[in-house]
């Protein structure tokens, strides 16, 4: 685990090309970032089902909605700073209010956009999308998960927001957690490691960090469970409660503001049903800045070491 690397965007493009062959209803829309997003791979193969709307994100979402009203399954996306950033109204009043078959897949989320700086580092998108009725929010952990998730959601009716990452390592790669494959089960969290001392909930590129934290904790005699909350909404309450009961203390880790994201979603479940100490690792309600991806993760407290420290604090808070 974590030895291999893979690019989430390549996985997105490959999944679209496969869907293009298997599902004639699938159409793909982009907004002047289709080469970077790799959705252009679909466009090269299926030009009549591929639409580049230029730098116009509100229209991108509106046209994707119109195609869905016309019976298509629309995959639309660009960088996460722009969608959902510039078009929350269209997402709310069209995609979600009409419960449309539009899958928003957006890349370059989080701090790891890197050198482009704070204006491009989207750390609010999970929160923005999670609170809109009907919307489903998915944060794949690696390229293997991206491919499985994209192919699966084409057959699940209704709107989705899928958040992917540009890359942590130079060359747009992120560590592969699911070397042995990954089968997406909608709304069902994936347990990666069993341990009874603390539950580590991760999503996206922070899942590899939780795995590393668990390995480091194990070397010190602390056994951690690791759970992939790839589907932040609808969240898997059953699994969260099960591991809250088993471990009695928990940590969440996400490349997102600690407000409103996956950690908040976990906190809502725990507060309502089985209160235990929970430490949330994430961006602490601040904007990012320019830097290399790993430098930013170090500076803003999003590494295995930070998760390990949070785990120790959560365990110390057990009653």
């Amino acid at each position: 685990m974590l030895e291999k690397m893979g690019a989430m965007r390549n996985a997105y493009g490959e999944a679209l090309v496969e869907l293009g062959a298997s599902n004639a209803r699938v159409v793909v829309l982009g907004a002047d970032t289709t080469e970077s997003m790799k959705s252009g791979m679909f466009g090269a193969k299926y030009p009549d089902r591929f639409f580049n709307l230029g730098i116009a994100e509100q229209n991108l979402v509106g046209v994707a909605a119109g195609l869905a009203f016309g019976g298509k399954v629309s995959f639309a996306g660009t960088y996460a700073i722009f969608v959902p950033g510039k078009c929350v109204d269209q997402v709310r009043n069209m995609l979600c209010y009409a419960d449309l078959d539009v899958k928003l897949v957006c890349s370059h989320a989080g701090l790891t956009v890197g050198p482009d700086g704070g204006s491009h580092e989207q750390v609010e998108d999970i929160a923005l999308m999670r609170c809109v009725p009907h919307m489903r929010v998915v944060v794949p952990a690696d390229a293997v998960a991206v491919k499985s998730i994209i192919k699966a959601i084409a057959d699940i009716p209704g709107p989705f927001y899928v958040r992917i990452t540009r890359g942590v390592i130079k060359g747009s790669n992120t560590p592969i957690v699911y070397e042995d494959g990954f089968e997406y089960k909608f709304g069902k969290a994936n347990v990666i490691r069993e341990g009874a001392d603390v539950a580590l909930f991760g999503c996206g590129i922070m899942l590899p960090e939780t795995v590393r934290a668990a390995e480091s904790l194990a070397a010190k005699g602390i056994q951690a469970s690791v759970i992939d909350i790839h589907t932040v909404k609808p969240i898997d309450q059953e699994t969260i409660i099960k591991y809250a009961k088993k471990c009695g203390a928990a940590v969440s880790a996400e490349e997102h503001n600690v407000m409103g994201g996956m950690g908040s979603a976990v906190a809502e479940v725990l507060t309502d049903q089985y209160p235990i100490p929970l430490k949330r690792v994430g961006v602490n309600d601040t904007f990012g800045e320019s830097g290399e991806a790993q430098e930013l993760l170090n500076k803003y407290g999003l590494t295995a070491a930070h998760i390990e420290e949070a785990a120790k604090q959560a365990i110390a808070m057990k009653r």
Binding site: V27, F51, Q58, N59, V61, G62, V63, A64, A65, G66, L67, A68, F69, G70, G71, K72, S74, Q90, M94
Partner: peptide, 10 residues
């Protein structure tokens, strides 16, 4: 009008 564009494309 955006939705109309999508409907017309479909």
């Amino acid at each position: 009008l955006s939705v109309g564009v999508g409907q017309a494309l479909a």
